[in-house]
Design a binder for these strands. Structure first.
Lengths: 126, 126
DNA sequence: GGTATCGCTTTCCTGAAAGATACCGGTATA
DNA sequence: TATACCGGTATCTTTCAGGAAAGCGATACC
């Protein structure tokens, strides 16, 4: 039987497959930083000001200290949040978004914009 | 010992905690659609034109038919991709990004932009 | 003395996602 | 006849993110 015409388009001709993958990497980096069950909530919580460990935990129901600790470390490693230890006793520890962390804002806004449209669309469809 | 001054900022005063969570939902929706090991690559592959099942699979090393099948279904459910079956034998099936699917573009670009900066920063730091 | 708070860490465990592998009917190709 | 392609599905196993619970040193409160 007659086959359908297929062109072999893969990547645009000026890009090799390898280059396509390379273009993908930064997108994955960004995605990694925001995905996961708690990251967004924690970032959001910190956008409203400095917070202490327990304070964040109390704000986010279900968040265990283990997870919070881990996520905060990730944020620190990526220089999105900073940790300040004060020599009180027992120690006081505060976390805060770095200026760099705040550069996530437009990205989150874009996600919010698209997500909102999508949500409406999916609900409208029923 | 003297405690440090803490304000109790949580959410901006005009937003309840519930409303904060609500603002989060659409962001998560968007994130869900893009995160995962294969979704981005599949979407990217489809931005370069209609593709057949095996064609996509060949383009993305390591992608099993089971995963591809599942991801394509997800894309269909979200109306981001469409499936066309042609009555040849054996059947020919083509997948393509819908116009709606193409609206993801600015979002992916934004992720790419931030991700690129972040990648540079992390590499520069060593 | 007993209990509570702070800021975690450690250990153990589970459910869900992802991977490996095999298979299916139908067709074309050698 | 046998082998390969197509578009998947079915089944089994592995991996791994994340949860539950306990503990820790230091302090403060009743």
């Amino acid at each position: 039987m007659e086959a359908i015409e297929h062109d072999k388009r893969k990547c645009p001709s000026h890009l090799s497959t390898g280059e396509c993958v390379k273009r993908l990497l930064p997108v994955k980096d960004a995605l990694d930083i925001l995905s996961g069950k708690w990251k967004l909530q924690i970032i959001l919580s910190l956008t409203f000001g400095k917070k202490r460990f327990k304070q964040i935990q109390r704000e986010i129901p279900g968040l265990t200290p283990k997870m919070l600790s881990k996520e905060l470390k990730d944020l620190e490693i990526n220089e999105l949040a900073s940790r300040h230890v004060y020599d009180t006793s027992p120690v006081t520890v505060e976390y805060e978004l770095t200026p760099y962390g705040k550069t996530l804002r437009p990205l989150i806004d874009e996600l919010h914009k698209w997500g909102t449209k999508h949500r409406k669309r999916m609900i409208a469809r029923e």
